[in-house]
Amino acid sequence: MIKIKNLHASVEGNEILRGIDLEINAGEVHAIMGPNGSGKSTLANVLAGHEGFEVTEGEVIFEGKKLLDMAPEERARDGVFLAFQYPIEIPGISNATFLKTAINEIRKAHDQEEISAKEFLERTRKYAKLLNMPDNLISRSVNSGFSGGEKKKNEIFQMLMLNPKLALLDETDSGLDIDALKIVSEGVNHFRSKENAVLLVTHYQRLLNYIVPDFVHVLSNGKIIKSGGKELAFELEEKGYDWIKNEELETA
C-alpha cells in the first residue's frame, strides 16, 4: 500500500527524519515507538502533507502514486488519514458541516454522488454510538470545548466517517482513561480490514494489547533502529530504549 524509501525531512534546516525505510501492506498494523522528539509525529505529518517540513531526500509511493508530489487534500482524497497528536479546535464550524464537506470533497474527487442526509445521519449515529460519544456531538463545533480525551475520540470518529485506506494514528491513546482507551481501540479494530492499513504511533505497550500490531518499529533520532513483531513492544517496556541504542552501538 505504501512504500517509504530513504525519507529525509527537515524543519528550519534541522534534519529530523534521517533516512526512513518502511513498507506497509494492506491488512497490516504497524506500531511506531520511540523516545520523545525522535521524529514520530514528523513522519506522520510528512506523510499527510504538512507544508512546515521540507523533504530533502527520498520517495514515498502510495497506491502506485508519488505521495510527496500531492497536496494534503489530494492525499486525503486518495485515502490517507492522520489522527493528530494535538487535534485542532475550529469554533463556529459544526462537526456536521466539517465532515459532510470532507466526505463530499472526497466523493467528488472520485466522481461519486454527494452523501445523502439519511446516510450521513445513519453513519454518524452508528459511529457515535460505537465510540460512546454524546448525541449532540454532530451539532457541536469541531473539537471546541472538547476535553483532551474527547478530542482523541473525535479523531477516531472522523476516521470511521471518512473510511481511509491508510490511517496514521499519532498517539491517539495519550490522555485517554482506561475505558476510553478500550472504546477507541474497538473503534480502530472495527475499522481494520484486509483493504486498509494502520500506522500507529504510541509510547505505551498497553495500547498494543488492544490493537495487536503485526510489526513494531523503533524510531530514534530520525531513523528506524529496530523492527520486530509485537514481542518487541514488551521488550521495550521492560528494558527501555537505551537497550536498543546500546545494541546498535555494539553492532556498529
Binding site: 494534503p72 487534500e73 492525499r75 488519514f81 466539517f98
Partner: peptide
C-alpha cells in the same frame, strides 16, 4: 496554518 493543514488533511480543498 495548523488549522488550515488540519482541514485540508480531511480532503477539503
Amino acid at each position: 496554518q495548523e488549522a488550515y493543514f488540519y482541514i485540508r488533511s480531511r480532503g477539503v480543498e
